[in-house]
Design a protein around this nucleic acid. Sequence first.
DNA 1: CGTATAGTTGACGGTTTTCAAGCATTGTGG
DNA 2: CCACAATGCTTGAAAACCGTCAACTATACG
Lengths: 236, 236
Amino acid sequence: MQDMQPSRPRNFCDSCAIRNRAICAELDEREIDLLNTIGRRRTLAAGEQLMWEGDEAVLVANVIEGVLKLSSHSADGKEQILGLVYPSDFLGRPFGETSPYGVEALTEAQICVFERADFDHFAREHPRLEHKLLERTLGELDRTRRWMLLLGRMNAEQKVASFLLEMADRLGNGVAGAQTSLILPVSRQQIADVLGLTIETVSRQLTRLRSAGAIELPSRREIILRDRADLEQRAG
Amino acid sequence: MQDMQPSRPRNFCDSCAIRNRAICAELDEREIDLLNTIGRRRTLAAGEQLMWEGDEAVLVANVIEGVLKLSSHSADGKEQILGLVYPSDFLGRPFGETSPYGVEALTEAQICVFERADFDHFAREHPRLEHKLLERTLGELDRTRRWMLLLGRMNAEQKVASFLLEMADRLGNGVAGAQTSLILPVSRQQIADVLGLTIETVSRQLTRLRSAGAIELPSRREIILRDRADLEQRAG
DNA sequence: CGTATAGTTGACGGTTTTCAAGCATTGTGG
DNA sequence: CCACAATGCTTGAAAACCGTCAACTATACG
């Protein structure tokens, strides 16, 4: 070693895959260092639950890798998935008492977690971070409202076609143009819970799309979009 | 006049009904004065459209009085109301290019409007305002997600009962305890568009609730909640 | 290899939509 | 002031769509 300064891997952020896309983008070195002291990395196994609906909201996080779901249950026990969370998305409820939804990892996932109290405090002292968080929250609100249109006014075919297109979009992170072949991070049951349908209806719609030549289903978790225009047509 | 200082009604904010509830709460006098120079009051007639879905997002506003709707249309023309906006709520899409939904006044309404560019600029320079906006946006996101559960997993009876309870809550602004008698700001068609139902289904459900003694319907726009516990039961 | 789990397919039934008619309230012009 | 149209709402009958229940198939896993 020629440089006698301790060759410190200064912090996790420097090598972070989402350093420039998450809310920490635009923080300067000093701020990043500070943020590093209150955050830590954590790996979640597929299926691991990070928060429970109604629990005290003790932590928030950035998603580095993997896909997680936010979900809530109706009185009679049916699940509704409120949103899927992808790399660079923010997770949790800052400035709030309880978590209005449960959070579960769908795939193995890596996240960067903060105690909510620490994060809230840091955010209030760093307006650039708060601004990023605001922009992200506004975007998430737009996306959620678009999903309301789907839940309220679309039929099963439109829902399934929309789901496939959105999934292709979001899995092809950053890469220009969406994927044409996707590995689903979700089971049929979970697709149903996202779309407000039953597993049987989802299955039937997928079969119909396959018969119509719009998609191929090489295996349970893999889908190839063969005719995107047709899917867009069906999505309405 | 004993005080020779010009007795100026310094700005609209001083006498504003929502001064302490909207995002402008916690701004100091100097900031409020500044905000006043870029904002103006505007009255909307019932039925007046303030923004159109997909249009350039040129303005944002605080709602002072009245109720407005945010809505979007599916490809085949069906409307879905994405949210109702009440006094002290914030309206519009800051930091965005286009408005993802249309905005229409349901009742006569009074709002405090800003050019979006002016507001964005002001917000970035006043972190306290941005913080308030962030808290409000996070709350709105929570509320929207709860609505997703309703759209995706509830049947017609649960939807209508939930709607009545929420409406009673939100119309009794601030007053401890919700209203027991409400004047609906919406038509049957609009209730249907909020709940993702048809007008006929809404009508039938209201008739059923009346027959069951849970509500009374003295006139088209008036509803009396006679048995709140029963409604809560039905809402699931 | 056998069992457990996930997904598919079929038959049936229920809830909601669709289509149609009628009623009630509001507003307008004679 | 009343007739009459326009609008909004209610009610009924039929149909469509999706959910439920059940059996079956394919894949994963020990």
